Computed example of a mutant assay.
Amino acid sequence: MTPRVLVVGPASCNEIIHLAALPEAVPGTHFAERSWATLGGTSAGKALNLASLGADVTLLTVLGTDDVARRVRRSLEAAGVRVISRESRSGLCERHVNLMAAGERVSIYAHLPEPVAEWTRADAAEHLAGKDVVVADLAWHARPWVAWAQDAGVPAWTDLHDFDGRSAFHAAFALADHVQLSSVAMPGWRDFAERSAADGTSVVVTHGAAGSAAVGPDGTWAEVPGASLDVDDTNGAGDAFFAGFLVARLAGADLTAALHAGAAQAAVCLAGPHLAGEVGGLEA
């Protein structure tokens, strides 16, 4: 059965700039080794990877009315993603500049749009109908969707990224039925995961090149080591992992198999210049 997934959150235009080393915080001139414009945004990344895995994907996002926004929409739709958007107050699309060096990233938000109108419970009733999962990503306009999905009986999934266990902004998202996070900012990730599992949440913790771990609500752990990979660009690898894991779980895979599926999709992303490897280029 084709998984039907609703994703709520950011889509952007990203300028990717690869440098020999990340610059120090001093004035100076730097020369890029290479650079390109592509689709960005954590929700766009998940939607692209989900679509490439055969899911029926709808993305609710905030887009401007400028040419960049039109290109973002065309690019997502060309990849098989259904896009429903709110206009931004500024009329401008979200834009990032990502400085990359040796797999490390400094992400600069060049423009972060606010929606003219927020999503409502009526929107939730309309867009949650018939969905197997809703993915609520880290954006202010997506925060109510975890509760709205759960009220509607639709499992809510979220990606907490570099959550440190204390951020108030992340709190509403951390109540989802399934969460993914990076261990980078949370040395006590195992304790956090076990507490969340005891409350009925399944948790995936990614460790970058070192692999990943997951625990289910029954307290069962699974761990998968990292693998040596050819890396073209690391942007969006966590979103690709999330998509691979989600599709595998919906197909009935156990935690270990789903972690392997997540790693396989992350490898697709890492091997190409766009959020889903060779998929996700910015249309003209």
Rank of each mutant, 00 (worst) to 15 (best):
G103T: 10
G262A: 09
D123N: 12
G281F: 15
T201S: 09
A168C: 11
L92C: 13
W36P: 02
V83D: 11
P217T: 01
T256A: 13
W36S: 03
A171R: 14
M1Q: 03
A213S: 12
V184H: 12
V215E: 02
W221R: 06
V5Y: 00
A261W: 02
S90I: 10
E118C: 03
V97E: 07
W145V: 05
V72H: 09
L181Q: 03
V279C: 11
G91N: 12
S202C: 13
T29Q: 11
A185R: 15
L275W: 07
A193N: 06
A136F: 00
N49F: 04
I16R: 04
V62Q: 00
V215H: 01
A185K: 14
M100W: 08
F241V: 10
G41R: 00
S35Y: 10
F173S: 00
L259G: 01
L99Y: 10
R34T: 12
G252W: 01
A210L: 03
G281S: 14
D232C: 12
L6N: 05
P187A: 04
G200M: 05
H260V: 11
E118F: 04
T58A: 09
A198M: 06
L59Q: 05
G153S: 12
P144I: 05
V215C: 00
V184P: 00
D151F: 04
W189R: 02
A156P: 09
C13W: 08
A124I: 02
V72E: 10
N235F: 11
A172V: 11
A37G: 01
F163Y: 15
F245A: 11
W36Y: 15
Q150C: 08
P113K: 04
A276W: 10
L63W: 03
A266D: 10
N235G: 08
A125L: 07
A139C: 05
M1G: 13
R74F: 05
T234K: 01
A264L: 09
D199L: 13
A44D: 03
H260T: 09
W157P: 03
G45A: 07
D232V: 15
L175N: 07
